[in-house]
Simulated assay, not measured.
Amino acid sequence: MMRAFNFSAGPATLPESVLRQASEEMLDWRGVGASVVEVSHRGAEFVAMAAETEADLRALLSIPDDYAVLFTAGGATTLQALLPLNLAAPGQVADYVVTGHWGKTALKQARPYVSLNIAASGEADGYRDIPDVAEWKLSPGAAYLHITANETIHGVEFRDMDAVFAVAAAPTGAVPVVADFSSSIAAEPVDVSRYGVIYGGAQKNLGPVGISFCIIRRDLLQREGQPRADIFDLRSVLAKESMLNTPPTWNWYLLGLTVKWMLAEGGVTEFAARNARKAAVLYAAIDGSGGYFRNEVAAPVRSRMNVPFFLHDEALDKPFLAEAKAAGLIGLKGHRALGGMRASIYNAMPEAGVQALADFMNDFRKRHG
């Protein structure tokens, strides 16, 4: 059996060594005589694994002690609804900067719970750039400022956060920055202490679909928020160590294995270097094609994780995808909201995979003129 290079945006490729270990442990996990999906989440073995995973994630991301780490089900979209419930008082304004599809989704989830202010939006330009921070219209006394660190579909990424933190701190005092890091978490070093909340789904860089992470400054959990069921109260989730109800145990286990793999590979500093090289190879194949391929995102905010691109003639889309699949390159079809192609090159995508894609693109261009 030969594994393909999987460029899917999520669920995304996982490290082969992680999949092999999971396969080996499927029938007997840690010598308990059963699979991890069969044992109690209240049992000593699973509780120890959960604590180990949190400790590893803290080490990987250098998470300070004054931040809580929560693992939740329901995906980033669920957290997009839970965070305004927990962080904003009834009727309080929250600022949102919309730089793509998932920023727009965050607005939709928050709308029932907060008074929304769209501080800036890139929609008029087709989400090809991030609006100039100097032009953002922020609200005095906002509960928080929400951004999407990396837009998985449109391929737009915040590459310089200094200006964002500066504007969030002025003129009326610090407003916590809440950031959806679903598709760029652990891709490079991030100073967690500058954010109020970092959250996202795991199914791109941290593990499989079905489990999410929420890294939240502990003082923000003291906010009263809005009336909500206990299951939606992040304070209760923390008090029960992310086991307020039965968690997605298999997904948690795989997340833990993936984090261990990243640590063993050299951590976020090593992956930052790899990701920079991978992105450079792929963008060079696009930019050096003489217009045969094109990426429409402004160069300073091009994503390192998700690279959308278009062929000069849409009639070539189907042949490109078919030939790519035959060459062992899968998951390249663009999202229906944008069309074209998209290559997601997360941490688990090896450099050899990106080079294989670049070589294929160059060869396809020569053969199809």
Rank of each mutant, 00 (worst) to 15 (best):
S193W: 02
V133F: 08
M26V: 12
K366P: 00
H154D: 12
A326D: 14
L221S: 00
E265Y: 04
R128Y: 03
K240W: 12
S303K: 10
G196C: 08
L338E: 03
G225C: 06
A163E: 14
L234T: 03
I286H: 07
G353D: 07
P112N: 12
N362Q: 14
S182T: 15
A337S: 15
V281I: 15
E157S: 06
A166P: 02
A327E: 13
N362C: 09
R20E: 15
Y195G: 05
V192N: 03
L87T: 07
L221H: 09
Y283K: 01
N295A: 11
A239W: 00
M161E: 11
D132Y: 00
A22S: 13
R217H: 15
Y283P: 09
S35P: 08
L263T: 07
M2I: 15
A356G: 04
V197N: 07
A110C: 13
D160A: 14
F309M: 11
A110H: 09
Y253L: 06
W250V: 04
S121W: 02
F71S: 01
A322D: 15
S62W: 04
A186T: 09
I130N: 03
A326G: 12
E188A: 15
Y346R: 12
G353M: 07
D219H: 06
G290Y: 10
N86V: 10
D65C: 05
A149R: 08
A59S: 12
S212P: 04
K204C: 10
A134I: 01
V114Q: 09
A315G: 09
G267S: 00
P84Y: 11
A322M: 06
A12W: 04
H41D: 15
A324E: 06
C214P: 04
E135W: 04
L311H: 13
L116M: 10
A76Y: 01
G100E: 05
G267N: 05
E351A: 10
A327V: 07
K240E: 13
V177A: 08
S344F: 09
M341W: 01
A12K: 00
K260W: 01
G33K: 02
D28I: 02
Y96S: 08
D287L: 09
T152A: 14
N205T: 12
P15F: 15
L338T: 12
Q355W: 03
V47S: 06
G141N: 12
T152P: 00
D56N: 14
Y283I: 03
L221V: 03
F364Q: 02
I216H: 01
L70I: 03
A120Q: 10
L82D: 06
G207N: 05
V192E: 10
E314P: 14
H41V: 13
F271L: 08
L282M: 06
E351R: 07
L107G: 04
M161H: 11
V190T: 14
A179L: 05
N347L: 13
G334S: 02
H154M: 12
R336G: 07
D317M: 10
V209D: 11
Y67V: 08
E135G: 13
I211S: 05
G207Q: 07
F320Y: 01
L85C: 06
